[in-house]
């Protein structure tokens, strides 16, 4: 088993930081503009549960359109992943759906908006999902030999 943090690879700080700034700006715009938290899992679960407020649908459609704009401008930059096991995608989706519903949030709602508000719940949730995310990715790639 390779040692942790043995080398830094594929580091893209400029685009990661620039994208992060845009995400923060988007979350701030949503809160300042219409008083809503940019929590993606909460929006999806809320829509499925039939909660009112078409703002959720508008935001999610905008999200897809924004990603689509980038992919249209630079189509080669985000290639489709090939050969990843379908079963793993489905199991992962079930876990993410169940976990975000029980835990009331995901990377955006807890990781950005919650931590940005210094919410103790979100700090705790983020620490936990980062930890189990690391465990799952390590097991996936080194234990099961799946992924690049």
């Amino acid at each position: 088993m390779p040692a942790p943090f043995a080398a830094i690879v594929d580091f893209t700080p400029a685009t990661a930081l620039a994208g992060g700034l845009l995400i923060g700006l988007a979350a701030l715009l949503l809160l300042a503009g219409i008083g809503r938290i940019a929590g993606i899992s909460g929006m999806v679960h809320g829509l499925v549960a039939g909660e009112g407020g078409g703002w959720r649908l508008s935001f999610l459609l905008g999200l897809v359109a924004g990603a689509g704009l980038y992919v249209t401008l630079w189509p080669a930059d985000l290639p489709a992943r090939q050969g990843f096991p379908t079963l793993m995608v489905v199991v992962a989706g079930l876990l993410v759906g169940l976990g975000t519903r029980l835990g009331s949030g995901c990377t955006s709602g807890h990781g950005v908006c919650g931590i940005g508000r210094l919410s103790p719940r979100s700090l705790a949730a983020t620490a936990v999902f980062m930890a189990t995310g690391v465990i799952a990715a390590v097991v996936l790639r080194h234990g099961l030999g799946i992924g690049p």
Partner: peptide, 29 residues
């Protein structure tokens, strides 16, 4: 909260998607 976050993290690390990126991936994957 903690149990939900733990399950979410496991799912995130098993495929590499959380909810927002999965929606964005509709456009290229």
């Amino acid at each position: 909260l903690l149990g939900g976050a733990a399950l979410f993290g496991l799912g995130w690390g098993l495929a590499g998607y959380c909810p927002g990126p999965a929606l964005a991936a509709l456009t290229f994957n």
